[in-house]
């Protein structure tokens, strides 16, 4: 009994310690961000591996999610004779929820895990230590550009996801199911609010990008420097990111759309 409580306590302390280290690391990373604007080529390089390499999966997933929304939405709406509202349904679902959330989940799996593995391996092969001894701060030189790149990439990826998804919904709705295209677009425009819906969705994706990149970098930087340790850190990145995205999505949704 005592042992259980003790191990629970130890676990709790461990969690708090990690949280503390995570926040300290974040502070250091943020301190390194301003000087990046003088060496933006470092960020561009990371935008390539973090952002560009995630585009394909975002495009394909976005298109299919939009097409499925079109099909499912149509089947439901047609019972009420409201299939003209398909555009609204597709656009609102994507812009408010699915765009930011699904693209963040994909981003965590595609770019976040890669970041963790890369940083973890750099740690285990003493590359980070080596930099420190060359008087190059790895947090500023390695982590900060990756952080900024993730932060910039996420809202762009989410926007691409939503836009492609709406197009997919339109393809199915208009092309396959024959919903009037004028009604599709005009109803969508009338009911989708630039501020309430689009901007809030963008804010969500910015928050998700921040958190996922932070988790990924911290897990890599804090990984046990062995192949097993890096493997576990990579898994943790994906799992913790997913929790963080879904939990934060609830909080943000409640804050943004809650008090209507």
């Amino acid at each position: 009994m005592i042992d259980t409580i003790r191990s629970l306590g130890r676990w709790g302390l461990g969690v708090f310690e990690r949280l503390g280290r995570g926040h300290l690391l974040l502070l250091e990373i943020l301190r390194g961000v301003p000087e990046l604007f003088l060496r933006f080529s470092l960020v561009i390089q990371q935008l390539s591996s973090v952002g560009v390499h995630s585009v394909l999966i975002i495009l394909i997933s976005g298109l299919f999610v939009g097409m499925v929304l079109g099909l499912q939405g149509y089947n439901t709406l047609v019972d009420f004779g409201a299939e003209e509202s398909l555009g609204v349904l597709v656009a609102l679902s994507l812009v408010r929820e699915l765009g930011p959330v699904v693209s963040a989940l994909l981003f965590a799996g595609r770019a976040g895990s890669a970041l963790t593995a890369e940083i973890g391996l750099m740690k285990s092969t003493e590359q980070l230590s080596g930099m420190e001894m060359m008087a190059v701060d790895p947090v500023r030189r390695v982590l900060a550009p990756r952080f900024l790149a993730g932060f910039i990439s996420m809202p762009l990826l989410a926007a691409i996801f939503s836009a492609v998804g709406i197009f997919g919904g339109f393809l199915v709705g208009h092309g396959l199911l024959g919903v009037d295209d004028g009604a599709f677009w005009s109803q969508m425009q009338a009911k989708t609010d630039w501020y309430e819906d689009v901007l809030n969705g963008v804010i969500k994706s910015i928050v998700f990008g921040f958190v996922v990149t932070w988790i990924a970098l911290f897990e890599g930087y804090d990984a046990t420097p062995t192949s097993e340790g890096v493997g576990r850190a990579t898994t943790r990145t994906v799992v913790h990111s997913a929790f963080a995205i879904l939990g934060l999505d609830f909080v943000l949704t409640a804050l943004m759309f809650g008090d209507v």
Binding site: L121, M122, T125, E126, Q127, S129, G130, M134, A135
Partner: peptide, 16 residues
């Protein structure tokens, strides 16, 4: 200070 110290790691620690 580290700019004035060199260190050769056991593994080399080259950037891969």
């Amino acid at each position: 200070l580290r700019k004035r110290m060199g260190m050769l790691f056991q593994s080399g620690a080259l950037l891969t």
